[in-house]
Design a protein around this nucleic acid. Structure first.
Length: 770
DNA sequence: TGGCTGTACTG
DNA sequence: CAGTACA
DNA sequence: GCCA
């Protein structure tokens, strides 16, 4: 059955494409798509089709004189400025701290040149393994063990000399893991043996405490308390897994990564009952920051995960052929990674549940019972099909049901009259940092998706993201067309690409795309805050290629200038610890100003991500029902944080009609020496208590999850936005635009919004769909 | 073949 | 208003 | 890009 339907489907598409006379998914198609969707010049640069030039924009650059005399200022000075302008906070509503005023001179050129060189150079886009590994941000109290010869071993290059023989690839169950032992020396023969074995199985042995550490292996005679004391920490970073010696033994014996949360692996706790500690603060998830929990080894990711690359970096992969350019060549472990351990904790009742390892199980566990989205099996059951016809696509969702011809993909279960089973928000995603055998494939697809995005394609990027999200949920390497096409949101063309990537390690389409000489500068330009495809391609068409060109010849908005000045900083990902620190700084400041104010860190941080692109702060206060009532607070908070040199720039401030709700800008950690301060993007969202739930939902994301929820609401005749879930929304019959706000159904409680939509509750970290 | 989320700030 | 951004 |  599946075979038949599959080919049907394939044939269908082939015919369809033939009709469109766009057969291959090679370049021509892309060109067409590009022109069709945005009629922007990029690809036709040479021909200079006047008609393709966006009518309106064309002249703009000249409209206001390409002045630019202001060659921007020196970074160092800039950072001081805010202070000087502290008082002058507002441009519009008085909330804008407009720093970056200083216009020293062109020292920027120096910096700029370097950044353009670095980022623009297409050949230079592979983050190198070694550099990435260094900085990040080691925990302050670097702990160095005193009693060990092992240390010397580690600190010196000795590690290299001190060769160990790795076990065969398939058995390197600890690939990507970084172990910190306690006691961390190899004096004891037994411990030495464990360390050696760990390394032979792929682990990295570390003797200094860094944020790359994935596991903390504790001697059996030590307690949790001893550990914390030893490390001088109040609590263990959430991503670190702490286990006792038994854990290693079992892993070796069973040749697999064990579930670290099993009772027998817990380090004993003199006080309370065992376990805990890593357990997430229970229902606290509601309160933001505390939510994070799951963990998963992603040391690899962080290792070369933050270069000024861009969206693809977070989850670079491994596996696959070494030939591929971007492939990390570490231990050279092509094999699909051995399943990594992943843990998910549930705190609903305060109890802790964990799932180990295999993706299948993890996925399964995460999904609530009704999710059918299970696995590969094709049960053909679901014959009830027809009964549920209703269409609803979801983002990508296919109504599996669709009777006859294809009941191929997934089966769904109708729920309460609407068949929302195909909405991605119904199944949830995998933990952000969980390693997956398809990681390499995903990283390649993400790059191609990113390419389409910067080229102006509106839909392919979304399709690629969804596909990646689905791939990440699979428990094994998808390498055949049949397997791929079975997956929801993956169609003919993506399936072909997946096969190509999985079997050859390359994707010709991507190679040709990135080989385009205009791609590097395009990528460079869209990396600027405030610049997207339209502008970037226009600049490209005008012949600009470097940031320097832009600074000298193009009319830039204030935000864009700032985006260029701090290009490198803003391109960096933010380690979780720093987000925590930045958030704490804000909380302290807020509490001092108004003890009732509630500060919640949202975004990827709330989803448990090991690194974030920016910091999202929700500002709320019990009892409030309108944004307006919080505006004064925001004003004083901004003023205060600016005077503290925490906020260093404002990019977007709330409209002064009182309805404004967001403030966007940049901040740094004042406690750091100025030189090492990195500018970070920060967003504040004002949220009255009555809209807290909807805002939390919105600000937690991810993107795909939000769109899915909103689409579902829409299909159910409702409307969901950051303020609440509304019903009886009247939409224009033709434009489908909302005509009436509708009646508020729920805005206060996040959970109730899920309930109203019939979506099983998803913890923040289960909302990672791309 | 048409739809694919909904909103806020800038200039 | 188009462009950009936020999730 | 995928889907209905």
């Amino acid at each position: 059955m599946t075979a038949a339907s599959k080919s049907d489907k394939a044939r269908f598409f082939e015919e369809l494409y033939r009709l469109n006379e766009f057969e291959s998914d090679g370049e021509p198609n892309e060109a067409r798509e590009f022109l069709k969707t945005c009629s922007k010049p990029i690809l036709s640069r040479t021909s200079e089709e006047p008609s393709l030039i966006p009518p309106r924009k064309v002249l703009k650059p000249f409209k206001k004189v390409p002045s630019i005399q202001r060659s921007i200022s020196e970074p160092e000075k800039i950072k001081d400025v805010p202070n000087a302008t502290v008082g002058s906070i507002g441009k519009r509503s008085g909330l804008r701290g407009n720093p970056q005023v200083p216009a020293a001179s062109g020292s920027l050129l120096g910096k700029e040149a370097s950044s353009s060189a670095g980022s623009a150079d297409s050949t230079n886009q592979r983050p190198s393994i070694e550099d990435r590994r260094t900085v990040s941000n080691p925990v302050p109290n670097t702990l160095v063990l005193t009693n060990s010869t092992g240390i010397d071993t580690m600190l010196g290059k000795k590690r290299k000399k001190d060769t160990i023989k790795l076990v065969r690839e398939a058995d390197r169950i600890f690939n990507g893991f970084e172990f910190f032992f306690l006691r961390n020396d190899d004096k004891s023969p037994l411990r030495k043996r464990r360390i050696t074995l760990s390394r032979e199985h792929g682990a990295i042995w570390t003797t200094t405490w860094t944020n790359k550490i994935t596991h903390l292996i504790v001697d059996n005679d030590l307690t949790r308390k001893d550990v914390l004391t030893y490390l001088k920490l109040n609590s263990l970073p959430p991503q670190v897994i702490m286990v006792n010696e038994e854990y290693l033994s079992d892993c070796f014996v069973q040749r697999r990564v064990m579930n670290s949360l099993l009772k027998k692996y817990q380090v004993k706790d003199p006080d309370a009952g065992a376990a805990k500690q890593m357990a997430p603060p229970p229902p606290a998830s509601e309160n933001s920051d505390s939510s994070l929990q799951l963990k998963a080894p992603q040391s690899k990711l962080s290792r070369w995960g933050n270069p000024p690359q861009q969206e693809t970096l977070p989850r670079i992969a491994q596996a696959r052929p070494a030939s591929y350019p971007q492939q990390p060549v570490v231990t050279g472990g092509p094999e699909a990674l051995s399943p990594r351990e992943a843990t998910t904790l549930s705190d609903k009742d305060g109890s802790m549940v964990a799932e180990t390892q295999d993706f299948g199980a993890l996925t399964e566990w995460i999904q609530l019972a009704k999710d059918t989205e299970g696995l590969p099996l094709d049960n053909e059951d679901e014959d009830a099909v027809d009964s549920v016809d209703h269409s609803d696509s979801d983002d990508g969702g296919a109504s599996p049901l669709r009777a006859p011809a294809k009941r191929i993909k997934r089966f769904a279960i109708k729920q309460g009259g609407t068949n929302q089973a195909n909405f991605q928000c119904m199944t949830g995603g995998t933990a952000a940092s969980t390693a997956n055998p398809n990681d390499y494939t995903i990283s390649v697809l993400e790059r191609l998706g990113a390419y389409y995005k910067r080229i102006g394609d509106q839909w392919r990027p979304t399709a690629y993201q969804k596909a990646c999200g689905m791939l990440r949920k699979q428990d094994h390497l998808i390498c055949t067309y049949e397997e791929a096409i079975e997956i929801r949101t993956i169609g003919h063309r993506l399936a072909k690409k997946i096969v190509e990537i999985a079997t050859t390690g390359r994707l010709r389409r991507l190679e040709s795309a990135e080989a385009d000489p205009t791609d590097a500068p395009l990528k460079l330009f869209v990396g600027i805050y405030g610049v997207n495809t339209t502008l970037a391609s226009e600049w490209l068409r005008q012949g600009h290629r470097t940031l320097d060109d832009l600074v000298k010849n193009v009319k830039l908005s204030e935000n864009q200038k700032l985006g260029i000045e701090h290009y490198d900083d803003l391109q960096q990902r933010i380690p979780r610890e720093e987000v925590t620190a930045l958030g704490q700084y804000i909380k302290d400041a807020a509490a001092a100003l108004d003890p009732d104010i509630e500060i919640i860190i949202g975004g990827s941080y709330r989803r448990g991500a090991p690194t974030s692109g920016d910091i999202d702060i929700i500002i709320s206060k019990p009892g409030t029902t309108s944004t307006t009532s919080l505006t004064p607070f925001l004003h004083s908070l901004i003023t205060h944080l600016t005077s503290q040199k925490f906020l260093v720039a404002a990019l977007a401030v709330p409209h002064d009609d009182g309805t404004g709700s967001k403030w966007h800008g940049c901040c740094v950690l004042p406690s750091k020496p100025r030189q090492s301060q990195i500018w970070r993007r920060i967003d504040f969202l004002l949220v009255p208590a009555s809209e807290r739930g909807a805002a939390l939902l919105y600000f937690t994301g991810d993107d795909i999850f939000n769109r899915s929820m909103r689409l579902l609401a829409n299909k159910m005749g409702m409307s969901l936005n950051q303020r609440g879930l509304y019903e009886n929304v009247m939409r224009d019959r033709w434009t489908r635009k909302k005509v009436t706000e509708g009646r508020l159904v729920e805005g206060r409680e996040e959970r109730r919004i899920f309930e109203r939509l019939g979506v099983p509750w998803r913890e923040p970290w289960e909302r990672v769909l791309h």
